[in-house]
């Protein structure tokens, strides 16, 4: 019995199981083990994608080669770059996601500011309609829009995506309006009121006081908007098909594009379309987003604290 109360036993117990002041070793090991296991499962599709993409044809056929390819084979990327028409589609994707995002961010900030700082009739109605724009599926409104664009000759023109963004109806705009609403609501009113007493106009107050202090909300909205526009394919396919081609659009018809470039009957067996080439294409598709994410990860990870989004 006295053995259990020996000072060394006490010390051991506190190191292993922890005490009030610190966590024990056992706890830490369990925590890390769980996180690493979940993290691995979580990222497994991504790892699979990358590893498959650098497999040569013989590695693909070899059942012994699962997670470690025998060589770093870049031929798949060479083909995928050509099939995706990478330089062109990449540039298109950047333009198609950056321009609407910029407009969407600015317009949503105006709307959010109006809702947060002014009292007017019908505000509840505006919130309800805002929520409805978030919930109503795109296929309930897309056909008349498409027909309208067809009449205006805008099908295939990037304006088809820019116009809704300019009028605050861009992709997932309700979320950004709510981000700005929360952001402006959480800013203290004092500065704006004193500026008003000094005779500053409402517009001037918005631009010189509200905008600078809500800068994090702008950055977070802009980044999320770019990502969501980049990944959106339902509307882009309907509005832009036949005009410009974005990277995800090209990826969704990858098989067809590949077979146009390498007709199945004429190429040798190693040049047939295989999953390694497909995975290279998929990886090239998300690569720009991965780069963006790793450069700006602070803004994704801390977006919540920075914008003061609550949960209401």
């Amino acid at each position: 019995m006295s053995f259990l109360h020996h000072p060394f036993a006490d010390y051991l117990r506190s190191v292993l199981l922890g005490n009030r002041a610190r966590r024990g070793l056992v706890y830490s090991i369990v925590l890390y083990a769980l996180l690493i296991a979940i993290g691995f499962v979580y990222l497994q599709p991504l790892l699979f994608m990358f590893i498959t993409s650098i497999k040569s044809a013989s590695d693909l056929l070899n059942p012994m080669v699962q997670w470690v390819p025998t060589e770093l084979f870049l031929g798949n990327y060479e083909k995928a770059l050509r099939v995706l028409d990478y330089p062109n589609t990449l540039l298109t994707s950047i333009l198609i996601s950056v321009i609407p995002s910029l407009l969407q961010t600015v317009v949503c900030s105006l709307v959010g500011y109006g809702l947060a700082r002014y009292r007017f009739r019908g505000k509840t109605l505006v919130f309800l309609l805002l929520l409805s724009t978030f919930i109503i599926p795109p296929q309930n409104t897309v056909i008349p829009q498409m027909l309208m664009y067809r009449d205006l000759g805008l099908l295939g023109n990037p304006l088809a995506l820019i116009l809704p963004a300019l009028l605050g109806q861009g992709y997932k705009s309700a979320i950004f309006v709510l981000i700005f609403y929360q952001g402006f609501l959480s800013l203290p009113k004092v500065l704006e009121e004193s500026a008003r007493l000094d005779g500053a106009s409402d517009i001037r107050i918005f631009f010189s006081i509200a905008v600078p202090s809500a800068l994090p909300a702008y950055i977070v909205s802009f980044i999320f908007s770019i990502v969501w526009y980049w990944n959106e394919t339902f509307l882009t396919v309907i509005f832009l098909e036949g005009g410009v081609t974005t990277l995800p659009m090209q990826l969704s018809k990858f098989t067809q594009a590949y077979e146009n470039m390498y007709p199945p009957g004429t190429v040798n067996i190693f040049d047939r379309l295989n999953e390694a080439v497909k995975m290279s294409g998929t990886f090239l598709n998300i690569l720009p987003l991965l780069v963006l994410y790793f450069i700006l990860q602070r803004w994704f990870v801390e977006s919540v604290e920075m914008t003061g989004i609550t949960g209401e």
């Binding site: 979580y42 990222l43 599709p45 991504l46 699979f48 994608m49 999320f224 990502v227 980049w230 990944n231 959106e232 394919t233 339902f234 995800p248 659009m249 990826l251 969704s252 990858f254 497909k278 995975m279 294409g281 998929t282 598709n285 998300i286 987003l289 991965l290 963006l292 994410y293 990860q297 994704f300 990870v301």
Partner: peptide, 15 residues
């Protein structure tokens, strides 16, 4: 948070 960035229709379809 990585999947926020890469979850898109064509990518999911291929995977």
């Amino acid at each position: 948070f990585l999947p926020i960035v890469i979850t898109s229709g064509p990518v999911i379809k291929e995977l």
